[in-house]
């Protein structure tokens, strides 16, 4: 936690220094945040070309607005607020549904969820979460151990099926390391909405990696 606080203060100082004309301050700032920001776009756009374009847009906007940066604003919030706006603009211009990362747009969200659910677990597809009541193929059931690679692949697929708000919230948490308040500041939602999105995203993703919550026995 202390390391995160120090890093946040360092980011603010670097951006302020860059804003007053200290060119060398930009490079370490860019190096620290380029990976997470790039993956934030890749995971939401689904293709590298779009991610490249949006990624560059964000940094150019940041460069142009460098003198308006206020040190009291956490740099990550500042950066990802710009990124969020770029992403929303992109989706609006493309006219795509905001619930799928697939560039082909061939599947509706419900179809994708069903396909993923059937592959993962019939219990998930049926909406029943109980480990006790499941009576399908033991080799494919929730009791079967998933390899790390399987979990990762299922997570990837499940991430693509999440609604944009949930996916973005999850990525801001995982890639940018933001807390609920910071995510709220970036997305413009209130803290309760952020928590709700994260909870729902987590439920879907937990199911994907086989970390199901057993139903209450009745």
């Amino acid at each position: 936690m202390l390391a995160l606080m120090v890093e946040a203060a360092d980011d603010a100082l670097l951006m302020t220094r860059y804003g007053i004309g200290d060119v060398p301050s930009f490079a370490p700032l860019y190096a620290r945040h380029k990976g997470p920001l790039y993956r934030y776009f890749v995971r939401q756009c689904g293709n590298a070309e779009t991610a490249d374009e949006l990624f560059q847009d964000v940094w150019l906007r940041l460069i142009k607005a460098r003198e308006r940066f206020e040190p009291r604003v956490p740099f990550t919030v500042y950066l990802y607020r710009i990124a969020h706006n770029c992403l929303v603009e992109h989706f609006r211009k493309s006219g795509r549904a905001l619930t799928s990362a697939s560039d082909t747009g061939q599947f509706r969200v419900e179809e994708i969820r069903e396909a993923v659910a059937e592959e993962i677990d019939p219990a998930f597809a049926s909406g029943r979460w109980s480990l006790v009541e499941w009576d399908g193929d033991p080799a494919r059931g929730p009791g079967a151990a998933l390899t790390g690679a399987e979990r990762t692949e299922r997570l990837r697929m499940a991430l693509e099926t999440l609604p944009m708000e949930q996916r973005e919230t999850f990525l801001l948490r995982e890639e940018a390391g933001m807390g609920l308040a910071e995510i709220a500041a970036v997305t413009g939602a209130n803290a309760e909405a952020v928590k709700s999105r994260l909870l729902n995203a987590l439920k879907t993703l937990r199911a994907a990696v086989g970390d199901l919550a057993p139903a209450d026995s009745r």
């Binding site: 790390g148 979990r151 990762t152 997570l155 991430l159 995982e174 987590l202 937990r206 990696v209 970390d211």
Partner: peptide
């Protein structure tokens, strides 16, 4: 400490 985070880190 979630398996979700572990799986995500492996992407």
């Amino acid at each position: 400490e979630s398996p979700v985070s572990t799986a995500y880190d492996n992407l």
